[in-house]
């Protein structure tokens, strides 16, 4: 990892700030702290960070507002910290442009895994190989083919678009709304049961145990995530 990677951490609780900072520093991040939203946005403006970590419950402004503001001028990944009771806010933050969230309380392992996931593609450069493998499945996006154990798997066009959308955002959480928009188009963001049914089909075809998926994961109340 290059040493120049910077992260802005916006969190009002000093104890949480402290351990998040320590954890990120062990991974080589240069951490700048801010204790409220306004301060954080100013820091972000001057530091041009490679990652933004924002608590949803800030004293001076809504975390969702911070996300929205930051997204207007930066494409750097945003990781949300939130309490379990804030499902609605999580979705709002994801739709406003956040990449992922962590539910409090979280361990350092989870934190670093999420950070790696949301920054992976950016650090690797935006180049992704047309061939992606997970478990016994091999997807070749350039040839529109999906193989499982060397045997071709038939996917319907919708299933293929859904899989493609998840693979393109590998490791990132995708809200129901966003997936609906990408797969069915901007006019089909309401009837999310379609999404659930097609997700189930994909799992039937690609997961070893569809009821206990390893790669095509459900984020309850929020959306789905592909974990390579």
């Amino acid at each position: 990892m290059t040493p120049a990677n910077t992260v802005i951490l916006i969190e009002d609780e000093p104890q949480i700030r402290r351990f998040v900072k320590e954890a990120l520093e062990t991974e080589g991040w240069k951490v700048f702290e801010a204790e409220n939203g306004k301060r954080g946005l100013i820091e972000a403006g001057s530091r041009k960070p490679d990652l933004l970590v924002v608590d949803l419950g800030l004293p001076d402004m809504d975390g969702v507002e911070v996300v929205r503001d930051f997204r207007t001028w930066s494409t750097a990944p945003i990781l949300i910290l939130s309490a379990r009771t804030e499902e609605r806010d999580k979705i709002l933050a994801l739709d406003a442009g956040a990449d992922d969230y962590l539910t409090k309380p979280f361990g350092i392992g989870e934190l670093l895994a999420r950070v790696r996931a949301v920054t992976r593609r950016r650090l690797q450069g935006l180049e992704t190989s047309p061939k992606q493998c997970f478990a016994d499945v091999e997807v070749d996006l350039s040839r529109h083919s999906v193989m499982r154990n060397g045997v071709p798997v038939h996917l319907t066009p919708t299933e293929y678009r859904l899989l493609g959308s998840l693979l393109a955002n590998s490791g990132k959480i995708m809200s129901h709304r966003r997936l609906m928009q990408e797969v069915w188009g901007p006019n089909h963001t309401e009837s999310s049961h379609y999404l659930r049914i097609y997700m189930s089909h994909l799992r039937q075809k690609l997961e070893i145990d569809p009821a206990q998926p390893i790669h095509l994961l459900t984020e309850t109340g929020v959306g789905y995530r592909f974990e390579p």
Partner: peptide
């Protein structure tokens, strides 16, 4: 919600710092 926030914040700190210590 105040109770939830006030109790969860120190717990989050506790979990995180215990992790730092363990690492």
């Amino acid at each position: 919600s105040a109770l939830s926030h006030d109790l969860r914040t120190p717990l989050t700190g506790l979990v995180g710092m215990a992790d730092v210590l363990a690492l």
